[in-house]
Design a protein around this nucleic acid. Structure first.
Lengths: 343, 343
DNA sequence: TTGAAAGCGCTAACAA
DNA sequence: TTGTTAGCGCTTTCAA
């Protein structure tokens, strides 16, 4: 288990490569960054020298001289939430095999913390930034607006995006789910939500408006908690819902964890799903469709959001102003399954 | 949605702050990095100047001059796997309110890819590195051994760790689970596993050895697939298990997704759990204990691994050689629940 | 197509 | 406790 501390001087520099290749340092630099503008002959010599010396460029020196890095900052409100895990996956797939790498900041649903992270990331001169909300503090927003790099806001689709945005209409998605419950004949729908961040709050408001407009609003059927979402919490919330409003006949859950928890709680109480209680979920992570009964859900395009966001960002980094459609609506899809399918 | 590109020259430098405060640049630098060695008076002037100018240090310049950064590299094999989500959480909690930040590399269960990431991270002169395996390529291992920064290997506990390690005995954990199935009277236990990475493979081997030693090994009851793990996959694997070995009376799942999927599949087939089939899971993520029936599982200390790893790393960064216990075994715990509790 | 010179913004090493 | 000097390894600028 011993370990040697390797001498710093071991590591070859541009100048070493230049000497080895018999060219100047700048030619080596160019060979690495834009081989096409270097003569075939010089390029081959340089490449051989790099190979021989095992040279790796120093990103710090490069960042200092060029005033930019290959870092892409990605701010998410949570790392445990499966929703963002899927977004991350899309983003990572997109940067792979590019010279960029992603740095994640987790602001834990705190706008203030997010502001600090924006400031911190910006001080690193990132090539681009992806942020997961439109709910920055005024100062956070100002920082993004004046950022010297492209910025993509993801998940939501709202007016006044800072630079570019990719997402879907969260309220429309909730409305779709609520409409489906009505279509199935449910008349006393409830709503379960944990972790009342601004986005969850907007979805709740969307549900409320829809229910009111359709004459099925019952305030005692709306159960929320500021605590984090979890399967266990879904069970608790359903319990509370039934104790407050025993006549509830359907429930729209603000995410899959809650829906699965509610389903399990229904099972424990011997409440038949979908006959006595319809359950509709939001997001549709993989497990939902494998429950018994399979959960109806509004599928949100999480991974695609990640993919498109990084795509737009890379294009814009390559050439500022080159992205035409700067605001993408990826939509959402209602997946009708057994948990709302009653005879 | 307009955006201005802020002039680079806008950004004040150390020299600007020094001039504003009427001291030298190095005094400003010291005020920031080690305020305690600067006189009260100088410190106050500098702090006021920083405030007035809105100065933020340039990490690239700092990295170049000092040959180190505030980056901690964290290599994980997957971002979607809940196991690592918990580890991440522990790590992020630990770096918060320090000057360090974490950069994640996802090597997608490919040792070759991991080697590339190690090389890439190392070129950034990180303050420390956390890697999620002991299964590096020889070259990857060599890179870690000669890394000029502390390294923590997490999850597994094996001989010959490179520098420091935090984990638990994965084979002992599996053995514990298998023993429990025998204790419950199950006699024909099966094993389900997806994504056969080296660690999953070692657990399978552990199960095999244990089963053989106890005279309950049935090769046709061991079902594996190289594909990624998921709830749906758990269902498929159980299906295959029953078609190959209909007399199977219990199943040990290599993680929670598979266990939940197996439970659902059992439900679909009207196989009673735990009476006709005992199910034991591995890892014990939150949802498992809320299933109906609740899943028995070996709980692995994922979050704590993250916490301890970052703790050790930070201590070692602060002072090389200061960490006494360089190899921590955090153990695992069998959580006995309904899915194996038969009359 | 290539190169020389001059920094980028900070810190290490030494001196006062 | 504070300052001076000399880079860190790269890229930019300008010239050839």
């Amino acid at each position: 288990m011993g370990r040697k501390t390797r001498m710093i001087s071991d590591r070859p520099t541009l100048a070493d490569v230049a000497q080895e290749a018999g060219v100047s340092a700048i030619t080596v630099s160019r060979t690495i960054r834009s081989p096409e503008i270097v003569s075939e002959r010089a390029r081959r010599k340089v490449e051989a020298a790099i190979e021989r010396l095992g040279y790796t460029p120093d990103p710090a020196a490069s960042a200092l001289a060029s005033r930019t890095t290959s870092t892409i900052g990605l701010l998410v409100p949570s790392l445990t939430n499966n929703v963002f895990a899927d977004v991350l996956r899309g983003v990572y797939e997109g940067v792979e095999s590019t010279r960029f790498f992603v740095q994640i900041g987790n602001y834990r649903y705190s706008a203030l913390h997010e502001e600090g992270l924006i400031r911190n990331f910006l001080s690193q001169k990132p090539a681009g930034l992806i942020v997961s909300s439109t709910d920055q503090t005024p100062e956070g927003r100002r920082l993004l607006e004046t950022a010297p790099c492209p910025v993509v806001q993801i998940m939501d689709l709202r007016d006044g995006a800072v630079d570019m945005s990719v997402g879907f209409d969260q309220v429309a998605a909730v409305r779709k789910a609520a409409q489906h419950l009505l279509d199935c004949g449910y008349r006393r729908p409830g709503f379960l939500s944990a972790r009342m961040d601004p986005r969850a709050q907007r979805r709740l408001n969307g549900f409320r408006d829809f229910a009111a407009a359709n004459g099925v609003l019952g305030e005692d059927r709306i159960i929320t908690t500021p605590q984090p979402s979890s399967v266990g919490m879904g069970g608790h919330l359903l319990e509370q819902l039934f104790s407050q409003a025993p006549d509830t006949d359907a429930v729209l859950c603000n995410n899959d964890d809650l829906a699965v928890g509610a389903l399990m709680e229904a099972k424990r109480r011997h409440v038949a799903v979908p006959e006595q209680l319809g359950i509709c979920s939001y997001n549709d992570i993989e497990m939902s469709r494998h429950m018994v009964p399979a959960l109806t859900a509004v599928a949100t395009p999480r991974r695609e959001i990640g993919q498109r966001a990084i795509e737009m960002l890379l294009a814009e980094i390559a050439e500022r102003g080159s992205v035409r459609d700067r605001h993408l609506d990826l939509g959402s899809e209602l997946m009708i399954r057994e948990s709302t399918r009653r005879a």
